[in-house]
């Protein structure tokens, strides 16, 4: 059966919550394996979303960014605590947030504020294999999948656009509209078409970029 790379299979299930809706999506790849680190966020069609809790930290541990994928609301200051005994040089050339923190140890005094939405790819200038992804979104309703499942709760009833992004996606996934009604749980299953792994230099601890 041909994989519906962009298509979503929807079906509704019985809900239990009273005032707000809950969105639950499960992700599988072409081989039916659950997919982690899928960034998921919903944008209200009615207007700008409210400001949510804005804080995040991307640590460097064992020459690896932890976590690999971070989803934040625009304007969130992100801490980069270095837990390794060596220094790192964190940088980004991504248009939403080019920056660099030159060779530092411990936690830099000033966090980096991601003030534009979009995908930011992080690297370390002295450790080529270090890689992290930050999805900056204009909504407080976001999450990333764990064990192949993502849940967004307390979603007020209304019309939304559902955004999905994965760092190994073969192509951008267009947002899909959906409506949430009170006391309704929305559950979806999404099949993703993924690339094997990003082309990055050898010497990489593969588990961080190629979870399997």
């Amino acid at each position: 059966m041909k994989s519906p790379s962009l298509g979503l299979l929807l079906h509704l299930a019985a809900a239990q919550a009273a005032t707000a809706a809950t969105l639950e999506i499960s992700f599988k790849d072409a081989r039916e394996a659950p997919v982690d680190d899928v960034a998921v966020w919903v944008m209200p069609k009615s207007g700008p979303a409210p400001i949510g809790k804005r804080e995040a930290a991307i640590a460097q541990k064992d020459k690896t960014f932890v976590p690999l994928v971070t989803v934040i609301q625009t304007g969130t200051p992100v801490q980069f605590p270095n837990m390794d005994p060596i220094r790192h040089h964190v940088y980004s050339f991504s248009p939403p947030k080019p920056f660099e923190i030159k060779l530092y140890a411990g936690t830099p005094v000033a966090p980096i504020v991601f003030d534009k939405p979009g995908e930011v790819v992080l690297g370390c200038n002295i450790h080529d294999h270090m890689l992290a992804f930050v999805y900056v979104v204009d909504t407080p309703w976001f999450a990333k999948s764990k064990n192949g499942v993502v849940r967004i709760e307390n979603l007020p009833a209304g019309d939304y656009l559902l955004h999905l992004a994965h760092y190994r996606q073969t192509a951008p996934i267009p947002p899909t509209p959906f409506s949430a009604r009170a006391d309704e749980n929305v559950a979806r299953a999404v099949a993703l078409s993924l690339k094997p792994a990003p082309a990055i230099p050898p010497g990489t601890p593969p588990s961080t970029v190629n979870p399997k």
């Binding site: 050339f93 992080l122 890689l131």
Partner: peptide, 9 residues
Amino acid sequence: VPVLAPLPI
């Protein structure tokens, strides 16, 4: 060769 940042840009 790719220009890596750290993914090819």
